[in-house]
Design a protein around this nucleic acid. Structure first.
Length: 879
RNA sequence: GCGGCUGUAGCUCAGAGGGAGAGCACCACCUUGACACGGUGGGGGUCACAGGUUCGAUUCCUGUCAGCCGCACCA
């Protein structure tokens, strides 16, 4: 074993071995309790970033923890076809490399190219998951466009259609001209943008009056079909029902009254363009207005725009404004900031567009999901996300699921050219179900990627075949771990789809974590160029260090910042553990003997470290059961570094290098026991180094990954040993502090006299003699409850004892008197505070007895100490 | 407009109804037979502000300020 742990030489070998040994394979036939989780599938042609690494780490902690707990764990991996993202990438490459657009080569050839692309880059993700140490069951890897999952998608589509929960309709959708497809509402990001409010005059037909409307998108006026005012707006009461002449377009449009209009905004007159605005669309429906489309799906003006036909929206706006101004219709222009929808994928401004699309009717599907959240059958960790979840579902609009793409699940609907009937079917129909006609053509569009992701927890397990072994055993899953940024996109949709199609929630617990930010707190993104590939980090410090950083940085639902410093801290911790293990293994050559751990053979400090271990086991177990990853990791860090390395190992050296072979054997056993349990407790967090250490520990066999989670022993609880050890630690720290303050070099030995103030503590202090001698570099140690204070000694008063360090010529008695006087002052302050508190009848009668007792003990201790200090001051005064 | 998060040491962040913690950074000392990716000791905080509840609030409640996020609307 090398003094520097070399992750690079260990990790890949271990992962390969785990995989070939089948350690991560689920065992559906096993009698053990199933524990299942499905991975949030990353984009198959993408690259994992640190956010994914965090997500994976948390899941792997749960998977490994439950495997150790004895559960039959299924952690199912896989990837998503990511419609728009993948198609866009392949399109870009096609253009760059061959100068072709997808329409040049046709649908079939293009889709074939995407599959090639997937084959080429699809294993980037899986190799990253391996490098991270993800204990997934590769034999069950899935892809959203696998045949089985595609069948699930078609089944769901057909059933929802038959139930009337999917419909095709002409509605306003969000159109991204760059992606060339419709988007759902949540794929639109609203960004505060500088813009203009144009005030335009619309004259009445009789030329008598003029109505001024305000608009931010003047180019849409070619699609105007009315101007609306509020029915109670006195200013315009006389206009309602009259006709206006639409400038530039030479059409007549009516003035109508509708409550939608806010009389206080703009002029109180709104142009109504049902084909290009969702609100106007609704007004149009209410008033039975035409839907005139002045802009096409390609983002260009239609023939309605006259001369402007064929122009894009931006140019059309400029020209429209110019014409209005030239012809005297433009009254004024006002600068405003307003929020404008942008495509969340490519940031292009999206246009509301009237379009024939497929929709999922949300109201009925949302209801049971809302109930599950309200009843807390669906639990969010942290809980505050329940409210956010419910709030969103409460007034969610119908979900536009059709996308004008080629890469994805093609919509299973066929149009008959004879009777125009739509046949919706799981299998491709050969004839129209209505008229039997043979001229069928399938809908060109594909489904929103999230439509298939929504089915992921059950489509991956064989559904709709509910008799499938995996589905029967592992569904519903146990927990979903993902980022809060896809709460609506994904979690909500899995919940309502799961409820609708399987009758149960797909998981009862949803653990939501935050986003990874860079060291300056900025979101990591491609455009900022601050994204990080976890594999690069792993090459540098190892997967364990990365995982431990991400785990300790986890606070429920909160974001975390990534920094090199944190990473180094984790690397150092891994190295510390490695070296502590080296130390133990260098000093223990044999398997730990059970007899050596018999309670009556244990010394105080042995009992102390076992008590601490037991407490750590219980805490970490409780914390992991409640998904408190960060606290669990920090608890282990503290135990390993402080208690085990800084104290126990140092104390153990006394007996390891000593002559008492029975003591030596016991200490070896304790060291081995603590180390063994420690690496098991740490294994979910840092699987590689713990597996490597495990292989060296005498008496272990098999994989640590397949071992049993420690439960410790109730016999290890020992409050007394712990209390005594703490007193000794206090004394040792006080002596070291004194040494340092007096500039006495650590190498200089010095005699130490310890007067134990309470008789009953004497045995503990006597037992701690060796420990004090070693850790304070004492030359000789005198421990008694009564003793003459040696000449020329400094006095250190600690909780259990007074310590005298006789150092003739070194101690400056004036300084010593002053130091003690300060100590007395501090003690008196404490005593006064506690006396006041304990003198308060309300406190004594109302505070819990335990608290009151604690304060009384503190007071007694301080008084004892003050007395000791005073005595010593008195003696020094006489000298 | 509605909802949420955050505000604690120089920095990054935990935490919890009973006189505040860690890591890093900083200062001093240490080649002690696991580790300098180490050890020992130290300095450093009105726990954003103001009220309230309580015997007791930094923790719970209300409000204010500051930073951030989500949702809705925006002619």
């Amino acid at each position: 074993m090398s003094p520097l742990y070399d992750a690079a030489s260990v990790e890949q070998r271990i992962y390969t071995n785990w995989e070939s040994a089948g350690v991560f394979r689920a065992q559906p036939k096993s009698p053990r309790r199933p524990y299942a989780l499905v991975i949030p599938p990353p984009n198959v042609t993408g690259v994992l970033h640190l956010g994914h690494a965090w997500d994976q780490t948390l899941q792997d902690i749960l998977a490994r923890y439950h495997r150790l707990r004895g559960d039959d764990v299924l952690w199912l991996p896989g990837t998503d076809h990511a419609g728009i993202a993948t198609q866009t990438r392949v399109e870009r490459t096609l253009l760059e490399e061959e100068g072709l657009r997808r329409h040049d080569i046709g649908r079939e050839a293009f889709v074939a190219k995407v599959w090639d692309w997937k084959a080429k880059y699809g294993d980037t993700i899986t190799s990253q998951i391996r490098r991270l140490g993800g204990s997934v069951d590769w034999s069950r890897e899935r892809f959203t466009m696998d045949e089985g999952l595609s069948k699930a998608v078609r089944t769901v589509f057909v059933r929802l259609y038959e139930k009337g929960l999917i419909y095709r309709g002409n509605r306003i959708i969000n159109w991204c001209a760059r992606c060339g497809t419709a988007l759902s509402d949540i794929e639109v990001e609203h960004v505060e943008t500088e813009g203009h409010l144009y005030y335009v005059d619309y004259p009445t037909v009789d030329g008598q009056e003029t109505v001024t409307i305000a608009t931010t998108r003047p180019e849409t006026m070619f699609g105007d079909v009315a101007v609306a005012v509020h029915p109670d707006d006195a200013r315009y009461a006389g206009l309602i029902g009259k006709s206006l002449r639409l400038p530039l377009a030479h059409r007549e449009i009516p003035v109508i009254a509708d409550e939608y209009v806010d009389p206080a905004y703009g002029t109180g007159c709104v142009k109504i363009t049902p084909a290009h605005d969702p609100n106007d669309f609704e007004v149009g429906e209410r008033h039975d207005l035409l839907q005139l489309q002045c802009m096409n799906a390609d983002g260009r003006m239609t023939e309605l725009a006259g001369d402007l036909q064929g122009l894009d929206a931006v140019t059309a706006r400029t020209k429209t404004v110019e014409s209005l101004e030239k012809q005297g219709f433009l009254r004024r222009v006002e600068k405003i900031t307003h929020s404008v929808g942008h495509c969340s994928r490519c940031s292009t401004v999206v246009n509301p567009l009237l379009s024939l699309q497929w929709f999922v009717r949300m109201e009925e599907l949302a209801r049971p999901a809302l109930k599950a959240a309200e009843d807390r059958e669906l639990k969010f960790i942290p809980d505050r996300f329940s409210k956010i979840f419910s709030h969103w579902l409460e007034d969610v609009r119908d979900w536009c699921i059709s996308r004008q793409l080629w890469w994805g699940h093609r919509i299973p609907a066929w149009f008959c050219s004879d009777c125009e009937h739509v046949t919706v079917s799981i299998e491709s129909p050969t004839a129209c179900e209505h008229c039997g006609g043979l001229c069928l053509s399938q809908d060109e569009d594909v489904l929103d990627t999230w439509f298939s992701s929504a089915l992921w927890p059950f489509s991956t397990m064989g559904w709709p075949d509910t008799a499938n072994e995996d589905f029967a055993r592992y569904y519903p899953t146990s927990v979903m771990v993902t980022g809060y940024d896809i709460l609506f996109f994904w979690v909500a949709r899995m919940v309502f789809m799961g409820l609708e199609f399987t009758g149960t929630l797909p998981f009862s617990d949803v653990v939501l974590h935050g986003l990874i930010r860079d060291s300056e707190g900025r979101k990591m993104s491609k455009s900022l160029g601050n994204g990080i590939n976890p594999v690069d980090v792993i090459e540098e410090v190892g997967a364990d260090a990365l995982r431990f950083t991400l785990a300790t940085g986890t606070a429920p639902g909160n974001d975390q910042r990534y920094s090199i410093e944190k990473l180094e801290g984790s690397r150092n911790f891994v190295n510390k553990l490695w070296n502590a293990s080296r130390f133990v293994l260098m000093n223990v050559t044999q398997r730990a003997e059970k007899e050596a751990l018999a309670v009556d053979r244990l010394a105080m400090t042995d009992r102390w470290i076992l008590d601490r271990l037991q407490e750590t086991i219980l805490s970490v177990t409780r914390l992991l059961d409640s998904y408190e990853f960060g606290e669990a990791a920090r608890t282990l860090y503290d135990f390993a570094w402080d208690d085990f390395c800084d104290w126990y190992i140092e104390i153990a050296k006394i007996d390891l290098y000593g002559t008492n072979s029975s003591r030596k054997e016991t200490v070896q056993s304790v060291l081995t026991t603590v180390l063994t349990h420690l690496v098991q407790l740490l294994h979910p967090f840092i699987p590689f180094v713990t597996e490597e250490i495990w292989s060296f520990i005498p008496g272990t066999s098999g994989w640590i990954a397949a071992s049993a989670w420690p439960t410790g022993s109730t016999e290890w609880r020992d409050e007394e040993a712990t209390a005594s050890t703490r007193l000794l630690q206090d004394v040792i720290r006080a002596i070291r502090n004194f040494r340092s303050a007096q500039n006495i070099p650590p190498s200089k030995q010095m005699p130490i006299f310890v007067r134990v103030r309470q008789e009953h503590l004497l045995p503990s202090f006597q037992e701690g003699e060796g420990m004090m001698r070693r850790l304070c570099n004492g030359s000789e140690l005198h421990i008694a409850s009564q003793m003459e204070i040696p000449d020329g000694a400094a006095t250190i008063v600690t909780e259990g004892a007074d310590v005298y360090v006789p150092l003739q010529g070194v101690i400056d008695f004036a300084a010593e008197r002053q130091r003690l006087a300060e100590e007395e002052k501090r003690l008196v302050e404490e005593i006064t505070r506690l006396q006041t508190k304990l003198g308060n009848v309300q406190f004594v009668s109302r505070a819990p007895a335990q608290v009151v007792d604690g304060e009384r003990r503190k007071l007694a201790d301080y008084e004892e100490r003050r007395q000791a200090v005073q005595e010593r001051i008195g003696q020094l005064a006489k000298m």
